[in-house]
Amino acid sequence: MRVLAFIIVCLTGALLLYGTGEFPDWGDPQSPASVHLSNVYIEKALEQTQVPNLVTAVLADYRGFDTMFETAVVFCAGLACFLLLRDFREKKERYYRHTPTGVILHVKDSKKIIKVGKEFAHMDKNWVPSDLIIKSVCRILIPFIQIYALYVVAHGDFSPGGGFQGGVIFGSSLILLAISYDLKTLVRRIKEKVLGIWAAVGVLIYVGIAAICMPMGGNFLDYSVLAPLVWDPHHVRALGMLGVEIGVGIAVTAVMAIIYINIVSEGRHEEGL
């Protein structure tokens, strides 16, 4: 089985390499992309889409299909991480700390579960005393990072930014929470199920906006037919892009958190870093 997989991977790689041989040289001024495509984008993008940011116009409108499947790829990455790493077996040994005295209990029997509350606290095996400075600074910073992430998503069609970047920034704020406190804090605040659902919802928002265009009488991903639905028909394409960017942002955020949690805790979602 492993040999078969290896052969398939090698064949796919060879095919891809063979395919790149047909490409024009990188930066070739005579290539079709430079001769025809770029000029059309640069000249027509503003009047066709009413979006001042050319990059977003190309990314989310002209090449909407590409971006849609990119989002699907991100979703698949999260899914693969979950399927490969997630380990539902209970951990055999647990450590608890008696809060008033600081005594550490090592429970080897997995059936004995000590209630965690005021008296006992969970403890990771390689436990590091929580640092007050780092904790409080991260508590101050995390909301600002999240607001900035929303700003980046919302301004995707006017200034540099967009769903992918905003989603990564938002995801990094969640990771910062896990690093400065511990993994349990993050997992307790955002359940695994919620993360999975959000990742799927993000992709669904993108595909949904694209699919609504069809019953409205346009092509798949043709935002212009959505004009009756929005409050500002003149900027309908910009608003459609904003919609799909929000979807991308949600998906990327959730996938970032899923990947991080699964990798650092070896799939057990209990302790790690």
Partner: peptide, 16 residues
């Protein structure tokens, strides 16, 4: 403001 907040904290945690 944010550099003032984060840079010393990062240094502190690295030393730690």
């Amino acid at each position: 403001f944010f550099v003032f907040l984060s840079s010393p904290t990062a240094t502190h945690s690295i030393v730690d």
